[in-house]
Design a protein around this nucleic acid. Sequence first.
DNA 1: CGGCATCCTAGGGGATACTG
DNA 2: CAGTATCCCCTAGGATGCCG
Lengths: 94, 94
Amino acid sequence: MAVISGAWAANVIWSLRAGPRRFNELRTDIPPISAKVLSTRLSELEQRGVLLRNVQPTSPPSVEYSLTELGGELVPALEAIVKVGHRLKSLGHG
Amino acid sequence: MAVISGAWAANVIWSLRAGPRRFNELRTDIPPISAKVLSTRLSELEQRGVLLRNVQPTSPPSVEYSLTELGGELVPALEAIVKVGHRLKSLGHG
DNA sequence: CGGCATCCTAGGGGATACTG
DNA sequence: CAGTATCCCCTAGGATGCCG
């Protein structure tokens, strides 16, 4: 379960589900996330093999993040959890 | 995603996937968990509708916890994540 | 633009002791 | 057995500032 541990880890994977995103795109995708935390999470997820980091040596520099194949396999699982979460919420408190 | 937030929440759901368990059974299922945290997590998960709490008014008292239907739907998702996690781990070292 | 280094804080979680 | 109450501490994470 450590794969998706850390704040916003799931959101990062979620934001990447449709395709590659750049650092600041992710920041605006996930409003209340700080640069430091996003950076930390990105490093962890990259190291774990969940996502890939592509540096374009342009000016200004551009860095793209995308899910690896295994990272992509997390998406349906996350979807399922979120779905259950919504249903639980709509039930109120049982 | 708040559904499975909190330390050991996933483990609790995991331990209940095969059927009802009692408080101290869960404690020994998840070795380094403290009574306080287990208790806290159990309350949260019950309130969220993930699991059910059955008190048997016997002596000594007995309390059984079991997954609700929606709680049970989290199991396959957790399984998927754990599976990916293991594969990532095996890749990570070679 | 991307992202480290630094400082600081809240609160989640551990250990222990106690209760019914 | 199944918790609850208390204290303490650790660290994840937010804000800010600087650099390539």
